[in-house]
Structure formats: C-alpha cells, structure tokens
C-alpha cells in the first residue's frame, strides 16, 4: 500500500480532531480549580471530591450500573438466541417479521420506543420502576446483540457441530460444549454493547421509569439543563474513562480471538 497523500492525511486529522476535541475539552475542564467554566483556575481534583459527597448522583449511578448489568445479560441471551435463529433456521414461519422486529429497534426513534413501551406497561397495569426500564433496555439491546453475534456465527465452521452430533452429543451438549465456546467472544462483545447502551439511555428510561428509579442519565440531564458546572464535567470524565476501559477490553478480547484463529 502506498503512502497517504497530504489531502488524505488532512481528512484523517480534521475528522478525528472534530470527533475528539470536544471530549478532550470536557475532560480538561473537569480538572479546573475555578467554578467558572470560562476561567482556568489551575489544576485541581476538587470536583471529583465533590462528586463523592453527592449522594443522589451516586445512588443514580449505582442504580444505572445494576440496571445495565441485568438488562445487558437479558439482551445478550435473547440476542444470541435470535442470532442463532436467523443464522441456522433457513426458513420459519414469520421470518421476515422476526428479522424486521430484531433490526427495527436499532433505528427506531427513542421517543417512539419509549412511548410505546410505557403504554404497554400501563395497559398491563405493571408498576413502573427498575424492572420496566430493564425490560425496555433489554428489548433495545436485543437487536444490537443479535447483529454482533450473527456476525460471529457467519464465520463459524458448522462441521464442528456436526462432528459433535456424529459422536453422539445431544443438541444441548453440543450447544454448550461446541457452539457457545466458539461464539463466546461475540456474546461478550454483545453484552458490553448492550451494557453501555443501557448506561447511556435517557429517553427510553424517562418514559418507562417510575418513582424511586432515577437513572444516572436522568440525573445528569436535569443537572445539564441547569447549566454547565465542573462537577458534571468530573462525572462525565469518570463515565468516559469507564466506557473507554470496557471498549479497549472488548477490542483486545476480539483481537486475541482473531490471533487464536491464526
């Protein structure tokens, strides 16, 4: 491959500067000693200290983490099953409807998904709170998880499964000893994607939550509406750090798996 021309290097630099400068500025100002966002008051970690005594924010963060954990687990199990169904069952009744329903939540405006799920919960007379948001997030994550797992299944050597069956393994044993270990990195990546989607969601959670279940994005949103403050910057920086860690772990996991394949 020949070297990139100056125009292409410029496109790369400008594109990534656009993507990253706002985040860099946000992180930098979380270490600002001054409360005024426009004035640089020297390096300080005081806003991180202030975060630790902000009990409502910490409660919301803890709730969001538990919620993301449960909904991501549900989403990756359901998404894996959906991906297996789409990849392995050539035709079944309502396949078009099924694949449509798996993919639709990916692009559906969140206000519609949120509103429709809320109306369902109200019709069924289900008390709104932790579990209704969990169900909503699991439904949202299902489609994303299915796509990630499906990509892994597409490169899967089915003769391994056939060999296990020929050697007398039941379908259940085959699934747990052959299929699942081979698609495990995909399932793990799907879980992480569903986890961050849930951690990130404001709109769907606002519609489907009830009293006493205020998630972290909902707290941040009401704080952001009041204006910019270095404490929010500090909270955002911690979140960015956490997410970056998860993404780097995920990509290392996928890379190691690629090396293992040779």
């Amino acid at each position: 491959m020949k070297r990139l021309g100056p125009g292409l290097v410029l496109a790369l630099v400008a594109g990534f500067a656009f993507l990253y400068l706002p985040i860099v500025a946000l992180v930098a100002y979380s270490f600002n000693g001054s409360r005024l966002v426009t004035v640089w008051g020297g390096f300080s970690t005081r806003w991180y200290g202030a975060l630790l005594s902000n009990q409502p924010l910490l409660d919301a963060a803890w709730l969001s983490l538990r919620l993301a954990f449960v909904s991501a687990t549900l989403a990756s199990v359901l998404g894996t099953l959906a991906a297996l169904a789409l990849a392995r069952h050539g035709r079944f009744a309502g396949r078009t409807l099924f694949s449509g329903m798996v993919l639709a939540p990916l692009v559906m405006p969140e206000v519609i998904t949120g509103l429709s799920l809320l109306l369902l919960f109200v019709s069924l007379d289900i008390g709104r709170g932790f579990w209704t948001v969990t169900i909503a997030h699991a439904t949202l994550g299902l489609g994303f998880a299915a796509i990630v797992v499906q990509a892994r299944l597409a490169r899967f050597d089915t003769s391994l499964e056939e060999a296990a069956r020929d050697l007398g393994a039941t379908p259940l044993v085959t699934f747990f000893t052959v299929t699942l270990p081979l698609i495990a990195p995909g399932v793990a990546a799907a879980w992480m994607l569903a986890f961050t989607l849930s951690l990130d969601d404001l709109v769907i959670a606002s519609f489907t939550t009830g009293p006493g279940a205020t998630t972290l994005p909902m707290r941040l949103y009401s704080a952001v509406r009041l204006g910019v403050s270095p404490e929010i910057n500090a909270a955002c920086t911690l979140l960015i750090g956490a997410v970056a860690l998860v993404v780097i772990c995920a990509s290392l996991l996928l890379k190691r798996e690629r090396f293992a394949r040779g």
Binding site: L19, L26, Y29, L202, L220, V224, C236, V243
Partner: peptide, 20 residues
C-alpha cells in the same frame, strides 16, 4: 476503534461537551 469510541461514550456527555 477511534471512530467507534466516541459512539460508545454517553450521548448526553457528547451533547454536554458542545454546550461548553
């Protein structure tokens, strides 16, 4: 990964960054 990374950070955070 560099293109996807900002997509993984919170939507709300990215919008908030632009307010500043």
């Amino acid at each position: 990964v560099l293109v996807i990374l900002p997509f993984w950070t919170s939507f709300l955070i990215r919008v908030y960054a632009w307010i500043g």
